[in-house]
Design a protein around this nucleic acid. Structure first.
Lengths: 195, 195, 195, 195
DNA sequence: ACCTAAGCGAGACGGTACGTCTCGTCTTGCG
DNA sequence: CGCAAGACGAGACGTACCGTCTCGCTTAGGT
């Protein structure tokens, strides 16, 4: 490790090293202690950053949580198994395993918790949900384009319902539960959508 | 002036008046300020109760939240429209309107938030979910008994998925959203379950 | 040393042990580092007290400084040499030596500094000055009663002027200066007061 | 729009416009908010100067305070009434009125406060006191030269004592107090010095 | 006529202290 | 023994300044 000097200002401009250190610290804290351990003080301490530096760039915990989450979620793979039910199962298993095995699960749960306190976080969460629903609707539309589905299918509703199940698993701490009902849920939805 | 005397101990036994005052105060605080305003201090202040009295009977915020929630949810009506899709729509509309128009929505959201911090609350929330899933599964089983459904339908999975959608609406603050996708979601699920 | 347990609340009443620990800590900090080192945080840290405990009983730094000062100044001896000039010299030497050799000098200087910032401290300082001026005026009046002084002497003015010189020595850090002008000042004042 | 261009560097040499703007800002802040409002940040903000520009030329608050004070005190008139007691009263009234009616009083009080924190400021204050004592001693020496005074009078001690009273009035916020004891103090000192 | 050196504004940086809030624990004194 | 009351140590909140830094720019003076 080549760390020698403490981080410093690099002039009248945002220091990317500080930003990275802060996001890393926040990620680590959420991974290790969850939302309960996540405080601006703790992040500052761990990142060896001043609190004002954090507040300068992330006016609220919600902003920081969102940034942390977006940095993580880029690593989630797309799914395309060729069949609708395979895609549905794959999506749920992908997402739950992503949440369960990376720190992203902690981050997501924290974001939901924060949204129950901070209206701005609530808005951000809703916007995030919308974006994800629109994204995942592609999975449905692909099947629609293949002619597998009833033509009156509401792709957004299906996508919304699908993600809702993943959310619930995350929020009650059952991401790793082998008895989860992912196959049965996917089966119900697949039958509800197919011709 | 007929100032009512302060509540006192009624001997070495739990005082129901204190319990009621505390639950009332907690309910009111959650209704008015949501989870952010909910603190043991605030409840004690409003109920004119000592903090130790609260901690004596509710060892954690989660316990208090659960008690508050259970006192409220008794007022939710059962649903039985005679058809599966009607029941599904009715369930979702009942639940979202119950959460949206009473303080129970705030309480539920607080419970979910608390569960992201406090493992005991998480367990309690999971147990509550299980109980509700089992209860709502009755709705599916009634249709199954009427012979409307495929015989291999997983009633718990269906019930779980159904409630997941209501949870998501609550958590992103869209209980009152007229553009929610309840009809489409119910349609997908109904088609997935019917013969 | 028999310290075993941390200090605790002793019920719904002020804990004298906490008060003493806080005043001790404040005194020690002022003695060691002067006004620059004196912060509520530092006092809390050293006294192993919570900040709210300090703010509960001393709403501002000025209050705490005053309490610390009053606890110290009880140890200052009275002066009575029998002659006016002896009393004047004795008073100045007593006071400057008291300020110079105990921590009270630091405390007094801090109080003056604080008074330049906090109007309440300024008022307290003025009130303290008035009390001391009235007290020290006794020294003049004794000589007056002995018939040594001109009958039109203003005892308060003399007392005020006398203390002003001690203040100045304290504020420019010359309490211990062997070249101070105490004898000459006392001589001028004595001649100005005697018949 | 004819927005005046911001101040710039005028090459590798100190910019007098910046210096003036900074001293003006500091003076104004001290006049308006006293020592409590006086911070390098506030001065920089008000002068539209960069903080390093201030730190470059005034390594500490004390330096800046001294510069501000010296720029102001030039406007204080000399006193010469022809009689000693008149000079003593005139000196005290001049000084207290100068401090009370211009911003110099705030500056002086700030300097004293700063001296209780910063040893360099303390030294500067002592040096300033010495210079003023020496200056004011001239007033005594004039009377001495006129043959009015006892030949053994210590002019510096008298001057020191005189200014001490003005300091005390300033520090307890009684510059404008009509009940101050200036006449009585001057009388005591005059009698103590005269033949 | 170029080039270097220094001053300038701006503002980010790691820190520390501010005064307030809530946490969960404790003890008292009354009933 | 329950109860209201409230003090206690702990520590997070979000803000203000501290003194240092680096930037991009200006201009003056030496070459």
């Amino acid at each position: 490790m080549t760390k020698v000097l403490a981080r410093r200002s690099i002039g009248s401009v945002r220091n990317p090293a500080a930003e990275e250190a802060i996001l890393d610290a926040a990620t680590a804290i959420l991974a290790e202690g969850g939302y309960g351990a996540f405080s601006i003080e703790a992040v500052a301490r761990r990142a060896k950053a001043g609190k004002p530096t954090i507040y300068r760039w992330w006016p609220s915990k919600a902003h920081l949580l969102l940034d942390v989450y977006h940095r993580l979620k880029d690593s989630m793979p797309e799914i395309d198994t060729g069949t609708l039910e395979g895609d549905l199962v794959g999506f749920l298993e992908n997402l739950t395993s992503f949440w369960g095995t990376t720190s992203s699960g902690s981050v997501f749960r924290s974001l939901v918790a924060e949204a129950q306190t901070d209206p701005m976080a609530a808005e951000a969460l809703a916007a995030y949900s919308d974006a994800r629903v629109a994204g995942t609707a592609g999975l449905i539309r692909r099947a629609l384009a293949r002619g597998e589905l009833r033509p009156d299918v509401d792709a957004e509703a299906a996508s919304d319902l699908l993600s809702a199940y993943a959310w619930k698993l995350a929020l009650i701490g059952r991401l790793d539960d082998p008895d989860n009902r992912i196959p049965a849920v996917a089966a119900i939805m697949a039958r509800g959508l197919l011709k």
